[in-house]
Design a protein around this nucleic acid. Structure first.
Length: 414
RNA sequence: CGGGGUGUGGCGCAGUGGUAGCGCGCGUCGUUCGGGACGACGAGGCCGGCGGUUCAAGUCCGCCCACCCCGACCA
């Protein structure tokens, strides 16, 4: 992608006080564009990152054996009346057709996935069943904030599982926890805290939340400095000073909730009268679980955790481009053009700053703002070599073009 | 949903009832070029909307809309 023709420009000046660093950086670097309160457009680089995040999530859902589906966002009112949530689910957007038919705009999809699963589940041999989708959710939040971290329309992966009994559910639940941990590790998060959930409609049974520690978050957490103990401060009845698991010091902090998992029990299968025949031929309601990951919120959380004063620092797993090529050679782009074509032909994605009318300083500042992990630079000083620099530090190395190709392929496992 | 604030060129802002200005950006030309360069010239505005007061409204009054912030809310 050439910046001169293909990139929506970065923004120097906004004057706004941003309520989170990720909000500011994603807008300034040209990844998202604010449309209205809680609504954002994803520009090409932002979409590239979002797609990479969702591909990682998808891979791990598939590994669980879950089946990917796509459920509608327009939900007939009847389905929500059946679960008695039409009036009680207060962030539900409601829309009306020309013929006065009412719909909910899906904030979650139990109302759709449960009757769908009912059509397939006949006997215990059909279980367990896992169905998931990655799509758009709508929630009429009282107040949207922090950019993409809390929007009214956002992207989410939601998985729903159906089980013959509680034991099978619990085994599946544990496997999802492992899959989630793999996903978060792959996305570059070093420390995601799993906590017991704080509340909600159906949390009488157990449920967990996954939280990334950062001040931009909305969740107050206490956690152990040494082990993996963590808890939502809301559920605390007494103030803890020592970790109940290992006795070490307890810390407090804010966090962004990036995922959650719930035991739904038979609440929805009862509402939709889903029954399967057990081994004795008796009708039984399947036990359900639901498992969410906010993929667009992850995009924000990744930036929130990976940035410095100059801009974003993308983890390699989700970087919008493999390399950012900067041409500083005066009035000549032949060498840089050659590098660009060579890398592209090798399957390496490159953001190429080919602009001739822009100063060297501006190109360098913009490259740090955008935050591609590897910067390649040619100038009057580099001869027939290419300067290789990582976004995370100031060290530079000189490579020939074939060496650059090799090192990029190694870095990204291409 | 309560409380507070802001709406003026693309963006950020100033503007005292009397014919709308600055910075950035943008266009042309020239000089620059390893951390958001500089000069010259130039283009660009129903001042959020509707109504009212006035000889005269960006400015005063009323209503509405949008956005931001604090709180409540948040599967």
């Amino acid at each position: 992608m050439k910046i001169s023709t293909d990139y929506i420009k970065t923004i120097t000046q906004t004057g706004k006080e941003f309520d989170s660093r990720s909000h500011e950086l994603l807008i300034k670097a040209g990844f998202i564009d604010p449309v209205a309160s809680g609504l954002y457009s994803y520009l090409p680089p932002g979409l590239a990152v979002l797609n990479k995040i969702e591909d990682i999530v998808r891979t791990h859902m598939n590994s669980l054996g879950a089946l990917e589906v796509s459920l509608p966002s327009l939900h007939p009112k009847d389905h929500w009346l059946q679960t008695k949530r039409w009036d009680s689910f207060d962030v539900l957007f409601k829309v009306q057709s020309r013929h006065d038919k009412e719909y909910g705009l899906g904030p979650s999809h139990e109302e759709i996935v449960t009757p769908l699963a009912a059509k397939y589940i006949q006997t215990h041999k059909d279980l367990p069943l896992g169905l998931y989708q990655i799509g758009t959710k709508f929630r009429d939040e009282a107040r949207a904030k922090s950019g993409i971290l809390r929007g009214r329309e956002f992207r989410m992966k939601d998985l729903y599982s159906f089980h013959a009994d509680n034991l099978d559910f619990e085994e599946y639940y544990k496997k999802v926890i492992v899959a989630y941990q793999k996903i978060f590790t792959e996305l570059g998060f070093e420390d995601v805290k799993m906590t017991e959930a704080s509340g909600g409609d159906f949390t009488k049974k157990f449920s967990h939340e996954f939280n990334v520690l950062t001040e931009a978050g909305e969740v107050d957490l206490i956690y152990c400095a040494a082990c993996d103990f963590a808890q939502n401060a809301e559920v605390l009845t007494t103030k803890l000073t020592k970790c109940p698991k290992c006795g070490e010091e307890i810390k407090e902090g804010r966090a962004i909730e990036i995922g959650n998992i719930f035991d739904l029990g038979t609440r929805f299968s009862d509402d939709f009268k889903v029954k399967f025949k057990d081994e004795q031929g008796r009708p039984v309601s399947p036990h359900m679980g639901c498992y969410g990951i906010g993929t667009s919120r992850l995009l924000g959380a990744i930036v929130e955790v990976n940035n410095d004063k100059n801009g974003i620092i993308w983890p390699t797993s989700v970087a919008p481009f493999h390399a950012h090529l900067v041409n500083l050679v005066r009035d000549d782009s032949k060498f840089a053009d050659l590098i660009y074509r060579t890398l592209q032909s090798e399957g390496i994605s490159v953001l190429y700053d080919d602009r001739s009318e822009v100063s060297a300083g501006e190109k360098l500042v913009v490259s740090d703002l955008i935050g591609v992990p590897i910067r390649l630079l040619v100038s009057d000083r580099t001869g027939d070599q290419v300067e290789w620099k990582l976004r995370i530090d100031e060290k530079t190395r000189m490579f020939s073009v074939p060496e650059v190709v090799k090192h990029l392929k190694d870095a990204y496992v291409i």
